[in-house]
Design a protein around this nucleic acid. Structure first.
Lengths: 220, 220, 220, 220
DNA sequence: CATGAATGAGCTTTCATTCAT
DNA sequence: TATGAATGAAAGCTCATTCAT
């Protein structure tokens, strides 16, 4: 791997584990066994590294998280979306955990973040609307977008809260599943008769995953 | 006011406005026109100040935010609770905005925070249960606590997200009301026939407050 | 002496001896046996120190270098002025030797410098005019100011050039006198019959001082 | 053009425009679109580049600035000399503006500089002596060399002072002419009756050039 | 209670220079 | 000849904290 990429990945790793505030550029360089000068040969400054991590985040999302494009709605597509979303949040958790501080110093990054936010809300809206169209949900038309936005906010804060609650630095996959199940909890009351069985199935699937504390996501 | 209290209040103010990361102990002392030595006479270190602010937060919550103790449920009691909660979050917003960093270095504070969290979730559970008992909500018994917890998380992150989204440092009261209305959005689908009118009323009340961009909370 | 003043004087000394470019704030602190933090407790940054040295320079000039206010011109007053001026330039030589670099980064200081320059030119003009009025010089009216300005420039660059020419870091007082004698050289050709004797005297005085390589200024 | 020469010329250009202190070897390489390694293949270090620029300076002077070799003195020859000298100073201005710093670290260059200085003073002496011989100036024999040296110093500092005084990075040709006119101002009082008309002519020529702010030197 | 000077480790960043290819 | 990644010492500066008074 090229030094530049090594820096990006090491930074992500260290930021995630110890927080962006704690990790200095010297820490990163030392961790990789390179000189601080070399790090600054590849990046203009610390923010620049963060921006590059954010680019990785955007790429990850574009490649892994897209609402299904099929006309017919499959129950699995929502689950797939949520699973993927929580994995993404976990992989880039330092960002969400320090959102305010990071965006405070970097207007450009803030703009990129807000754009991503918008498109995320849009994706969630789309999924909800698909489900409405399929007769699986019954949401007042004027509430769809606000609901989608609320779900997005909740997703973004979920990992931060889990991280605070558990004393370990590592999060267990089951805790991610718990996040997903909260989203389902929010959506479920809008279920129609046609879909309530499906939601029950989904819930029990996640409950058992949580119970198993499964090693399913170990490969993350 | 005693120096000790002045430090606490000034710190809260400065942390809220500029972020805990930005505000140094010297800033606080200079802002008050006292010496750094004096500040450290009253506090062991910066964390100590934050702990005291947290005490203030606890006190504020205990005094202002309690689920109604009446047996019968009044629609107003939920609104009162939510209003008060969002005002509290706004008053101590720096804390929620930097939650992770602050708790990372301070295990004792973390414990206090987790305790407060628990009791908050409990309060929300209680309110939900009261409403269930009053026939206003229909929530599966096994979901009440998880729903309450989810609402709490959402509340805790609301202000952080608003702060990121709006470019101003100040938040408008209407934005707090928007937060409340999101909570209602989450609860509303559980409404029974008996209460749907009430929820509609509540919603329209907040929508108009948001529209007014009311000066109602100016006295905060 | 207060730390603040110690820093100013040590900086002046070190800048003069090794050049402003070479001397870092850490050098200054180490030289005084104080911590870098302490230095920055007293000064906002390196430029701030330089500004304070410049204030010292202004003060030195205001206190020591003023054209005589007497109506009648005494030969001694010009000599006194020139002597004092060259001593001042010597004392603050680092500034003139790095003029361009120093002013490039500091617009405020540049303004102060330009102001001082103006008043210096004005002082020299005044002296020349006094001598014209006293019938000691014969300078076309339209040339007085340009001549004064030229003399000022020459004075400002004299020490720089001497410093380059001599290999030692120290300058000998005789070299300052050489500077003065150059000024006299510039003015002398404008002498009238009435004053040519006086100029001869002045010249021979400085020639003998230069020859002596006198210890006269050792007390500087 | 060979890489080596490209580096020399680009460095001269960048040093002149932004100052030697500001321009790094990496700037130079980037400006030329070559690698820093390549630059260091051609030059041992930064000083080496400066030395080469100085060689260019010497060459420029030898080719363009020589006192007329004719026995008889023409008024034009002094003007030609001064014009050429100021153009040379402008072309290599970074050197004079940072003289002290540059020579401080490089004894070899210092020796070369001192040699050039001597020969310059000699040239000016020669011109003055020619004019004395031609009965155009009346300078005491013992003053000729000191006067020449003084003129040289003044010339060397002229551009530095203009650069400080004007806020622009560019100097106007008229400002160079102003420099020349100062030299004439220094020499003029030594004029004999036979030459005073000539000096008046020269002065008015430069005054009008200054007034015109002429584009005459645009081809520099 | 209060002052304010002082500490010092450590931060981000720079830049002349080197060296394997 | 040329590349460009890499070095590393050192720069200016910060800030939570200490301590003599």
């Amino acid at each position: 791997m090229k030094t530049r990429d090594m820096v990006i990945h090491a930074s992500l790793e260290l930021f995630n584990e110890h927080g962006e505030r704690t990790i200095t550029t010297n820490h990163i360089a030392a961790h990789l066994g390179i000189s601080p000068g070399n790090l600054y040969y590849h990046f203009a400054n610390k923010q620049d590294i963060i921006q590059e991590i954010f680019s990785l985040f955007e790429k990850h999302i574009n490649e892994n998280i897209k609402p299904s494009e099929e006309k017919e709605f499959h129950a699995g597509s929502m689950m797939a979306y949520l699973d993927a979303a929580f994995v993404a949040l976990w992989k880039f958790r330092f960002f969400y955990v320090n959102l305010h501080d990071i965006l405070l110093k970097d207007d450009q990054l803030k703009k990129r973040y807000l754009k991503l936010q918008q498109s995320t809300t849009h994706s969630i809206s789309q999924i909800l609307q698909q489900m409405v169209n399929a007769g699986l949900l019954c949401i007042p038309a004027e509430d769809v977008e606000r609901l989608a936005d609320t779900i997005r906010i909740l997703m973004g804060s979920w990992i931060g809260h889990k991280l605070v609650q558990s004393n370990q630095k590592e999060i267990k996959p089951s805790e991610l599943f718990d996040g997903v199940s909260r989203m389902i909890l929010i959506i479920k009351p809008y279920a129609t008769e046609a879909s309530s069985a499906m939601f029950s199935q989904m819930e029990s699937r996640y409950q058992s995953l949580i119970a198993e504390d499964g090693a399913a996501l170990n490969a993350i």
